[in-house]
Design a protein around this nucleic acid. Structure first.
Length: 372
DNA sequence: AGGTATTCACATGAAACTATTCTCTGAGTTAGG
DNA sequence: TAACTCAGAGAATAGTTTCATGTGAATACCTGT
């Protein structure tokens, strides 16, 4: 976490002024924050919440802030786990399983309401949780305030899905969206500034060439101004330079970094897929190697059955394979477009979405796992 | 020629099932007093 | 009598299967000219 956050002064001020009443024991409005990824949303809210806690500690007011990322696997990606995590943050341990959800819910209320205070909960990537379990938990949470006797609860929702608010139930929408803040993407100039800031803290002077900063900023600006992307590029370029023993970071290192980030991402996701999903991917791979111009769901399924037979794996239904193909598409390993071939049905047009060098590596991994 | 109806090959949805892991509870057992 | 053991009921979750319904447009089939 950097010590200062350039180009987000406005947003941070807004956030602060909305949240500040907490220090005087008032209930701050619920806030809804949106903006694409890498625009500093999480960073800003965490910064503000930290400050709030510091100040409240200093002047003795009862404020508790909780930051939770709803996307983290095994942490808060279901309603049960969200409340489990909230309770954890309040200092109560709850088991992973075995308890009914509404018990957690009750415990949570009692815990919050045990004394007079203001509690602020920031739910990052709230849309991913919503997609999994619907908006019931949000409704419950927003409704809480009326039921609490002593404490006050405010919610900060963070999402990178701009249309998220529209999908919500009206009641939740009006309650959660009391205040809205939009984080705009950084432009290339701002990205440069951010990079320069970090370079001052992270690198020795004169190591990073001017062109490198421009390049990182430009590449990231193409990806809707994603600052994290820019910083990753710079960091990986730095690592590569160090490994090669070169004295300075140059543009060519950024090129390698770009390639490597992509490669690592794909290889990691492929490796971490369950066996069935890998088998499906392997089938896609084999088919497109055989020069099929158009790989369709049916083709993949047939091939997949063969792969399963060869490896004595229990094969799944077509329904499931169809979903797996969709998942691989989401992961960006393959591209699967739904097309209609008129009289000849509707299916997915599937192709690989990875560059040749990465492909080679992936193929190696899968081949050792499934043979020919 | 132009318009409508069919039809294909899956997509997409919903519900239900399987297996695993874990808590809670109460009955039965056991050790110690 | 308190402490311990253990089986059974219930939960949460991930990953599937089963059943049901949806769908875009290339063709087949009509229609009237």
């Amino acid at each position: 976490m950097p010590s200062n956050i350039p180009h987000r002064e406005n947003e941070i001020n807004q956030l602060s002024s909305i949240i500040a009443p907490a220090l005087r024991g008032y209930h701050p409005n619920n806030i809804f924050i949106y903006g694409t990824c890498g625009t500093g949303k999480s960073l800003s809210i965490r910064f503000v919440l930290n400050q709030l806690e510091d100040i409240s500690r200093a002047n003795g007011s009862e404020v508790k802030t909780i930051y939770i990322n709803c996307k983290m696997k095994k942490v808060a990606d279901t309603e049960y786990r969200l409340f489990a995590q909230l309770l954890q943050e309040m200092g109560v341990h709850v088991p992973d399983t075995g308890l009914p959800t509404d018990v957690l819910y009750r415990n949570f209320f009692e815990k919050i309401d045990e004394k007079k205070r203001v509690v602020i909960i920031a739910l990052d990537e709230i849309d991913s949780l919503f997609k999994k379990v619907g908006d019931e938990f949000l409704y419950n949470l927003t409704r809480v305030n009326g039921e609490l006797k002593r404490a006050q609860l405010s919610i900060v929702g963070i999402t990178n899905d701009l249309s998220f608010l529209n999908n919500l139930d009206m009641r939740v929408k009006s309650s959660l969206g009391e205040e809205e803040i939009l984080f705009k993407p950084y432009n290339a100039m701002q990205l440069k500034d951010i990079l320069q800031n970090r370079i001052k803290e992270g690198f020795n002077e004169g190591i990073v060439e001017e062109g490198v900063i421009n390049k990182c900023a430009a590449l990231a600006a193409q990806e809707h101004g994603d600052a994290r992307r820019a910083l990753d590029l710079l960091r990986v370029a730095g690592e590569i330079t160090e490994r090669l023993g070169d004295p300075k970071i140059e543009e060519k290192h950024v090129d390698i970094a770009e390639e490597k980030i992509d490669m690592d991402r794909v290889v990691e996701t492929v490796k971490s897929q369950p066996r069935q999903s890998q088998a499906v991917l392997y089938s896609v791979l084999k088919l497109s190697n055989n020069g099929h111009t158009r790989v369709l769901t049916g083709d993949v399924f047939d091939e997949y059955i063969k792969v399963c037979a060869n490896n004595s794996i229990k094969s799944l239904t077509q329904r499931r394979v169809s979903d797996l193909i969709g998942e691989l598409d989401m992961l960006g390993v393959i591209t699967a477009r739904v097309i209609s071939k008129g009289r000849y049905g509707r299916t997915r047009d599937i192709s690989l979405a990875i560059s040749d060098s990465v492909l080679e590596k992936v193929e190696g991994i899968l081949r050792t796992r499934f043979g020919d």
